[in-house]
């Protein structure tokens, strides 16, 4: 059985973002790149399913510029994934192009409809950069298989999965999906393992297959959303501190919230 995990590399969550002079992207200088946090739950879940289903192979795929994007794959291989696939592409892709490129890659590895193809495809519920929360659903459409997003519990059986999807107010939808399917993972699904030193040593011997983006049939017309006019949040003056003893502080605070800020 094959499980595919789709990853994205994003700036570390502690990064202070700076903007390029042309206002069309962020300044990548000095950024530390990490696997997008929600993708870690996808990797962990795939490895867990493999542990209880012998004969399973976990493939991790990412699209991005070499060599940087390979680091994301190495992180996943060090956690325990079996093989990496790098879609080598220098230019930024939008969500639709990414989904098309992933679908074409998975199709070239047996697709999602054949005996020899993907049984389950996992990815994070959103990426830590553009946060469109789109690629999982788009990928499912291009592979013509069902999907479920924002999953915090997954019970695997060979023909179907039973999942819990997080919706508003802490409520959950319990959904059964026929396999193959695409699932996007949320925090709470599992606790992703760290890559151990032996894991990192092993990862160096694992295969990373490289695919040239230009052979995947993704065209310029597949580019749908353009971003421009990047700006940083406006500087705010520091808080107005309210002094005095506690009774006077709270009464002043409630007064300014009501009379000045008018939010009550």
């Amino acid at each position: 059985m094959k499980i595919f995990v789709c990853l994205k590399q994003v700036p570390d969550t502690d990064t202070r973002i700076k903007i390029q002079g042309d206002l069309a992207s962020i300044d990548a200088n000095g950024i530390k790149w990490i696997v997008s946090p929600y993708d870690l739950y996808a990797i962990e879940e795939a490895i867990k399913i493999r542990e209880s289903n012998p004969g399973t192979q976990v493939y991790v795929i990412t699209a991005g510029p070499k060599p940087r994007a390979s680091e994301a794959l190495i992180t996943a291989l060090a956690m325990g994934a079996d093989e990496g696939i790098l879609i080598n592409v220098a230019q930024p892709l939008d969500a639709n192009q990414t989904a098309k490129a992933l679908a074409a890659t998975i199709k070239s590895e047996g697709g999602a409809k054949s005996e020899n193809g993907a049984r389950l495809i996992l990815t994070g519920r959103s990426s830590g950069d553009y946060n469109q929360s789109s690629v999982a659903q788009m990928l499912a459409e291009y592979l013509e298989i069902p999907h479920a997003t924002v999953i915090s519990k997954l019970q695997f059986s060979p023909d179907s999965v039973l999942v819990e999807r997080d919706i508003e107010g802490g409520a959950k939808e319990v959904i059964q999906l026929k396999l193959p399917a695409v699932i996007s993972t949320n925090k709470g699904l599992n606790s992703p393992r760290y890559s151990s030193l032996p894991g990192i040593m092993k990862a160096k011997k694992k295969t990373i297959k490289e695919i040239d983006f230009t052979i995947l049939g993704v065209s310029a017309e597949d580019f749908k959303v353009k971003y421009s006019n990047f700006t940083l949040p406006p500087d705010k003056p520091a808080a107005r501190l309210i002094s005095g003893d506690v009774p006077s502080q709270v009464s002043q605070l409630v007064k300014v919230l009501r009379d000045e800020a008018k939010v009550l």
């Binding site: 700036p11 969550t13 990064t15 973002i17 962020i26 830590g128 971003y227 006019n229």
Partner: peptide
């Protein structure tokens, strides 16, 4: 973008 660390059109 980047969870509110910047904005874009």
């Amino acid at each position: 973008l980047y969870a509110g660390k910047c904005f874009a059109q």
